[in-house]
Design a protein around this nucleic acid. Structure first.
Length: 294
RNA sequence: GGUUCCGUGGCCGAGUGGCUAGGCAGAGCUCUGCAAAAGCUUCUACAGCAGUUCGAAUCUGCUCGGAACCU
């Protein structure tokens, strides 16, 4: 009997992943798990380029509108949920389709994350506050004091990594390095990854058009309605950040829109860097009928 | 026509005799619980010509280009 298989579609933003995934899922008669760290939020809509309601009706999607921006969602959350959803889908179909641009989430799903005990929220908040007040020097000093191994091996210029190392050390009493098992769990299903890409010029054109379309669709209104939540992590998002700046009167709408386009191109580039490194990805262009690649 | 000021890399911008300004954009990259995040590396200069000087983006002259004011 054939092993059930997850077909993962990756690629930069605006390349056409959503449409390709829907075509494939319909062809296979299965469902889609979105692997997108922003489309899961029900409050975010225009700016995150979700599938349309019609598309969602065509194929059931998981991890779309499934969470609130007030909830904490991260790669571990995704790993756990996606594994549940996969086995749910496999009860009815030998295939599941996963599509998205969040490389870390996809890796968490395919390769697993090391089991690190949950971090005490008080400790986390404490560290964040101190960092904001005292800066990187303080953070480096703390890490050097409490987790010298990480200090000498880790990214000491990256505040996020330092804070993570410190909060794990403070919560568990152990270095984050001690949790790194280097063991990849064996998933009970096969995985095929297909990468979608376009020539850079063409992708950039699509990005520009999509941003203009978002503005026409009322992105400024959507952003205005979310001001109260602007400090939430979910709002640290291309399209929203730039328009908050505009609302603050710091930039004109025109330059905010230009900034969204630039940020989106930079994001697309980071995605390509991430996915190109994965040599198991089979690359094609978004026009290809993906079922022919299986 | 005259006077004054200005001309720095794709853009912004500091420097005023010797020492890589910096930022943005671009290019390349990193990635184990906020990842549309965070971080790292990196290219392109001193408008042109001549002169002074051991040494000029910096001083002098001329040329070109721009701005302001005067006539």
């Amino acid at each position: 009997m054939q092993q059930p298989t997850v077909i993962i579609i990756v690629g930069p933003t605006a390349v056409g992943k959503t449409a390709a995934a829907i075509r494939l899922a319909r062809h296979l008669g299965t469902r889609i798990i979105s692997a997108d760290s922003r489309q899961c939020y029900k409050e975010l809509d225009i700016g995150v380029a979700k599938p349309t309601p019609e598309e969602l009706r065509l194929v059931p999607h998981y991890f779309i509108n499934s969470h609130s921006i007030t909830e904490e969602v991260n790669a571990a959350t995704f790993e756990e949920l996606a594994l549940q959803w996969t086995s749910e889908i496999f009860r009815k179909s030998p295939y599941a389709v996963m599509v998205g641009g969040t490389g870390l989430y996809i890796r968490a799903f395919t390769d697993g994350l090391d089991a690190i005990p949950p971090v005490d929220q008080g400790i986390r908040t404490h560290i964040r506050h101190h960092y904001e007040e005292k800066g990187l020097d303080w953070l480096q000093e703390e890490v050097r004091k409490y987790d010298p191994d990480f200090y000498s091996a880790g990214e000491i210029l990256n505040p996020q990594r330092l804070m993570r190392a410190l909060e794990v050390r403070m919560s568990t009493g152990q270095s984050i390095l001690s949790f790194r098992t280097k063991q990849r769990p064996q998933r009970p299903f096969g995985i095929r990854t297909i990468g979608l890409q376009l020539p850079k010029g063409e992708l950039h054109r699509r990005i520009d058009q999509r941003v203009d379309a978002m503005i026409r669709a009322g992105l400024t209104k959507e952003v205005e309605s979310l001001v109260a939540y602007r400090s939430h992590n979910a709002l640290q998002t291309v399209g929203y950040r730039e328009l908050f700046e505009w609302m603050d009167g710091k930039v004109s709408l025109e330059s905010a829109i230009a900034a969204i386009k630039t940020s989106t191109r930079q994001y697309a580039k980071r995605q390509m860097t991430w996915f190109h490194r994965d040599l198991s990805v089979r690359w094609t262009d978004p026009g290809t009928a993906l079922e022919t690649l299986l």
